[in-house]
């Protein structure tokens, strides 16, 4: 199969259980974006996920991540050639060129973006008051870091995101298993699910605030709500998508339903569930920012919003950069975790 194991199969899930989650259109647009990089990962038949290097990683925005892998490749190539003898130097040279080329390819777009960001305001093609040159933003970021302000905001944001995501995992996976496995539960809940999953999560933010107040509860709740959908829908799809032959095979060995569930349904659904968790990870950051723009006293979303109100434009951009790097790292982490649990899913 040409498609990759990480995201493609579930995204193209059957019409009754689409995996693309139902949030406001801007959120949905950017939420789908993190799924992109992983979709481009080549399917690796490696049995040990930890050795799988992100060689095909097109995530040019994370220069820190690919480089070690690239170096590992170079070292591997060098040590490999040292066994074969005469052309060591040439091979080492060729290896370095190849590695340099691959680093170059991965960073060129980001470098270009950075350059444009720096140059356009300096040439006053765009108003530097509204778009601070990158160097200025980085300086502001450094100041925020030194003052400890950035850490406080990041911590507040992370706690909200992670609690929301964790609660979503705790709630949505068992519910999804139940809906996927028991036909009556599915029949009962499907109309409600259809209704809610087509309602943008952020459209409900005012309702959450109204009922739960402006504090942490409403923020974590909205993140929980947004994150629950991809996990729930993917869990349902995962359970429904188990190869019937595997179920038949296990049944023929006299496995009672509970064991069948534990030994066949659950392990077969794990990769699909993880795809849902990865998508939810992206949502947790995206919804977080919006939630923090309403009545928060800390958090990166608050920082961005507050900086804009007070015309601290460099700080605003520093906040934006922080949140995007945070999202990127989080997604990378989840992609790796997902791959670790899906090594067998390559056919």
């Amino acid at each position: 199969m040409a498609s990759t194991p990480t995201s493609a199969p579930t995204v193209s899930a059957p019409a009754d259980a689409p995996a693309v989650a139902p949030t406001a259109s801007p959120v949905r647009f950017s939420a789908d974006a993190p799924a992109g990089p992983s979709a481009a990962f080549p399917a690796r038949p490696s049995t040990d996920a930890s050795t799988a290097s992100p060689a095909g990683a097109p995530v040019a925005g994370a220069p820190s991540a690919p480089i070690p892998a690239v170096l590992r490749e170079a070292v591997a190539e060098a040590s490999e050639s040292s066994l074969t003898g005469p052309s060591v130097g040439r091979r080492l040279w060729r290896g370095s060129v190849r590695v340099a080329g691959s680093v170059g390819r991965r960073t060129v777009a980001v470098a270009a973006l950075a350059a444009i960001w720096e140059i356009l305001p300096r040439l006053e093609v765009v108003d530097p008051t509204f778009l601070t040159p990158l160097s200025g933003v980085l300086a502001a970021w450094w100041d925020l870091l030194l003052s400890g302000e950035l850490l406080d905001h990041t911590q507040a944001s992370l706690i909200r995101s992670l609690s929301g995501l964790a609660l979503a995992i705790i709630v949505a996976i068992p519910l999804g298993l139940l809906i996927g496995w028991y036909r009556p539960v599915a029949d009962l809940l499907n109309p409600v699910l259809e209704l809610f999953r087509n309602t943008a999560a952020l459209a409900l933010l005012p309702v959450f605030v109204l009922i739960l107040g402006l504090g942490e509860t409403s923020k974590i709740s909205i993140i929980l709500y947004a994150c629950a959908w991809p996990i729930l829908l993917n869990t349902i799809a995962g359970v429904k998508g188990v190869d019937p032959l595997l179920i038949k095979s296990a049944r023929s060995m006299g496995l009672p339903p509970i064991r069948l569930f534990q030994k066949v349904i659950l392990p077969a659904a794990v990769p699909t569930i993880f795809t849902g968790i990865r998508m939810a990870g992206a949502y947790s950051i995206l919804v977080l920012v919006a939630a923090e723009m309403v009545g928060a006293k800390a958090g990166l979303g608050y920082l961005i919003n507050y900086a804009q109100f007070n015309f601290r434009v460099p700080d605003m951009y520093a906040g934006i950069i922080t949140i995007s790097v945070l999202g990127l790292l989080f997604n990378q982490f989840l992609v790796r975790l997902e791959r670790r649990f899906s090594t067998w899913r390559t056919t």
Partner: peptide, 19 residues
């Protein structure tokens, strides 16, 4: 009157657990 381990089945499509 039901499946059991006194019979073993081999299917055309192997039905091995991929994980």
């Amino acid at each position: 009157n039901g499946p059991g381990l006194d019979r073993g089945i081999v299917f055309q499509q192997y039905a091995l657990f991929p994980w």
